[in-house]
Design a protein around this nucleic acid. Structure first.
Lengths: 356, 356
DNA sequence: GGACCCTGCTTAAACGTTTAATCAGGATAG
DNA sequence: CTATCCTGATTAAACGTTTAAGCAGGGTCC
C-alpha cells in the first residue's frame, strides 16, 4: 500500500521524547525557538530511529517538491549524457532531484513534456530547447541552455568564441581554404559556431559552408558528402561544428585514402566520448558543462527562493539574465600543418581524461 | 511560496457543484458509487475550472509517488541515451515520471544514489548496474537491466545470442581468423557477447580476444591497439563488443591504410548514433531498447500493484524473473567477404532510421 | 408490513509535515 | 508590585487527496 517507509516519523520521535511534533520539526530545521540541549536530544533520537523525513509531506505543506525538471529535445542526442550528468550533479548538490522529460524532437511533444513536469510539481526546469524553438512562459522558473544569441533566460557555452578559437587555431597552422561543416542552418548553436569560425579564420582564409541536411535532402540519409573532391579542390581543413559530423568527415576522408592530419585537418566540437579514441584523435572544442549546469541550477534555486510571495506573473524570470561560459580548445592529432610530409612522429596516446 | 498551482482543487469543484469533495474524488477516479449523471457534471466542471490533481497530495495519502528511479552507472556512457529515452517513454506511457541518478561509475556513489531516490519516495527503480556490481535488497521493487547471466530480477537483451548471430554472419562471409575486441573482462555483458561470438563462429574459426583495458594498462589510455599488425598476421575480421571499440578499430585500421571491408571486416554492438554515418557504415547488433524498457517498466508496475498489503520483506522482488529480448543484426558496409578485390560498388546510403 | 439490501451520497479521519498563534513562567523594567 | 518582554515549549490548522464508515431513502422479498 505505502512505499516501505521506515515507519519512524516525527510523531514517533516526538512521542519517544515526550515533546510535541512541532518542536521536533523546529529542532531539526533550526527554525523556531528550541533549547540547544533539546535540539541535541532530538537529533540523537532521530538518528537512533533512523528517521527519514517524508519529502512528500513536506512538499504538500510547503508547495515545494525539491525537484527540477530537465527537458531535452532528443535524449538520443550524443551530447545529452554530458548535459544530464552535469545537471544531475549540480542539482543533487543543491538538494534537488531531477525529473527527465524527452520531447523526441517534436515541438508539440515539447510543450506536452513541459506540462507533464508541471503536473508533477517541479519547482523549476532547465530546458534544452529544440532547434529554433522559443520557450513560452511556463508557470515556473526556467533556465534555458542554448546559445547566448537566443533571447530569454539563457545560460550556455560561448559557442561563437569557441568557433573563433578554433578558427584561429586552424589559421595559425597555415590553412587558407577551409570547409565548414554543419548539419542544418536552423540551429542557433551551429550558426554561432560557424560565425565564430569565420571570424577566427580571418579575412585571408577562404571559407565555404556545407550543410549536411541539404546534401542528404538530395542524396539520401547517410550519403557520402563528397569531401574527397573538396580536398582535391584545395581545401586543407574540414571544421565540423559537431564531433558527429567531424567523425563522419574523418572516416570519409580516410576511406578515400586522404591522410589526416598530414594532408588535411579535421576538427569537431563538443569533445564527445569517441573523440579521444579514434585514430587520429579528434581536435575539438570542449564545453564546461559542469559550470554551465552550476549556473543554470544556481539561477533556478535563486528564482525559486525569490518566488516566495511574488505574484505568479513575475515568476518564470530567472534573474541572472544571460551567462556565457568559455569553451576550451582541445588539440589532439587530427589537426596539423597542411600538406606536411613530416610524419606526426608516433601517434602519442592522448590523456584520456574524459571525465573532466 | 507555493508552486503556481492553478488554484482549483477538489474542494473548489465540489463547492461549485454543491457536493462533497469525497464525491468528486470518487467521480473522477471511478471508484466509489456515484451516479453517472453526477460523474458527467463533475467531469465537466473539472474541465471548466482547469482542475489539475495534486500528485503530491495523492502521493502523501496513497504512499505512491508515481515516480520511478533510473540509476545509471555512468551517464556519460554512450549507450545511455537509448536507455534513458526508452525508459522515459515506457514510464510516461504507464503514467510514471522518471527521476535520474548518476552513480558516476563509483560503487559507493551507486548505493548513495539509490538512497537519494528512496528518500524521494520512488515507487520502484530500474538499475543499470555498474560492471560486476550486484544489487543488494533495496526497499522497493527493482528491475535490473544487465544481462541474463546476472542473478536477480533481470531484463535485458540476449547478448549471448546477439554474439552468436554476429559470429554466424562473419563465418558465413568466410572469415576464418577473427579478433574479438572488448574493453574489460569484468563486464558480464561483454563476456556474454564474446561467448556468443565464439559459439556463432564455430569450431573451425580461430579466435583471439583482445581486452583494451589490458593494452591500455601497459601503453596508456587511448594508445594504438596494434591492429594493423594483427591484420598482417592474418586476422580478417575484428568483432568488437561495443560500437565504441569498433569505431576505434575502424579508424585505426583505416589510418594504417587497410581497407574496410575489402581487406578486413569490422563489426560492433549496440548501433550507437554514429554507426550509420561513419564510412564505411558499421555492421552492428541492435538491442530492442523499447521492448526492454517496456518489460522493465511492466515488471515494476506489476510489483508495485502487488505490493499492496504485502510485508516489506517480500517487496523488492520483481515477479517476471528474467526476460531476454532478442537482438537484431544490422548489416551495413563494414563487413564483407575477406580479401575481396570486388570494390563494394559505390557505397550506398544506409537507411538512416536511427530511431528504431 | 417489517426485515433487508442496494444506491448515492456525506462525514471524518488520515497521510507527515510546517507554521502561525498561543501560552506558561521567569526575568526585567519602571 | 505590576506591566512587559523574552524564552521554550504547545496547540491547532493547513496542504489536497483518498477511503473507510455511516446514513437516508427507496425498492424488494417473504
Amino acid at each position: 500500500m505505502k512505499t516501505v517507509r521506515t515507519g519512524s516519523n516525527m510523531s514517533a520521535i516526538a512521542a519517544a521524547l515526550g515533546v510535541s511534533a512541532a518542536t521536533v520539526s523546529n529542532a531539526l530545521s533550526g527554525k523556531g525557538r528550541v533549547s540547544p540541549e533539546l535540539v541535541e536530544k532530538v537529533r540523537a533520537k532521530a538518528a537512533e530511529l533512523g528517521y527519514v523525513p517524508s519529502l512528500t509531506a513536506r512538499a504538500l505543506r510547503t508547495g515545494r517538491t525539491g525537484v527540477l525538471g530537465l527537458v531535452l529535445p532528443d535524449i538520443a542526442n550524443p551530447l545529452f549524457p554530458q548535459i544530464a550528468q552535469a545537471i544531475e550533479n549540480a542539482a543533487a548538490n543543491a538538494g534537488f532531484g531531477v525529473l527527465i522529460a524527452d520531447s523526441r524532437g517534436d515541438i508539440g511533444q515539447q510543450t506536452e513534456a513541459i506540462n507533464r513536469l508541471l503536473e508533477r510539481g517541479v519547482d523549476g526546469m532547465v530546458i534544452v530547447p529544440r532547434r529554433g524553438t522559443r520557450i513560452a512562459d511556463v508557470g515556473c522558473p526556467v533556465a534555458v541552455i542554448d546559445t547566448p544569441s537566443t533571447p530569454g533566460n539563457t545560460v550556455s557555452a560561448d559557442h561563437w568564441d569557441g568557433g573563433a578559437q578554433m578558427g584561429r587555431h586552424l589559421a595559425a597552422l597555415g590553412h587558407r581554404k577551409v570547409l565548414l561543416i554543419g548539419t542544418g542552418s536552423s540551429s542557433n548553436v551551429q550558426n554561432d559556431r560557424i560565425g565564430g569560425l569565420k571570424a577566427g579564420l580571418g579575412a585571408d582564409v577562404e571559407c565555404e559552408t556545407l550543410w549536411i541536411e541539404k546534401v542528404e535532402a538530395l542524396s539520401g540519409k547517410g550519403c557520402p558528402l563528397g569531401l574527397a573532391a573538396k580536398a582535391k579542390a584545395g581545401f586543407t581543413a574540414f571544421a565540423a561544428v559537431s564531433d558527429l559530423s567531424a567523425l563522419r568527415a574523418l572516416t570519409e576522408l580516410q576511406r578515400a585514402g586522404i591522410r589526416v592530419p598530414e594532408k588535411v585537418s579535421v576538427t569537431g566540437f563538443d569533445d564527445l566520448v569517441w573523440s579521444p579514441v579514434v585514430t587520429p584523435a579528434l581536435t575539438t572544442m570542449r564545453m564546461d558543462m559542469a559550470k554551465i549546469a552550476d549556473l543554470a541550477v544556481a539561477a533556478l534555486t535563486g528564482a525559486i527562493e525569490a518566488a516566495g510571495g511574488i505574484e505568479p506573473g513575475m515568476a518564470g524570470k530567472v534573474a541572472s539574465g544571460r551567462d556565457r561560459v568559455p569553451m576550451q580548445l582541445v588539440v589532439r592529432q587530427s589537426s596539423g600543418v597542411p600538406n606536411s610530409h613530416a610524419q606526426t612522429s608516433t601517434i602519442k596516446p592522448t590523456a584520456g581524461e574524459l571525465t573532466r
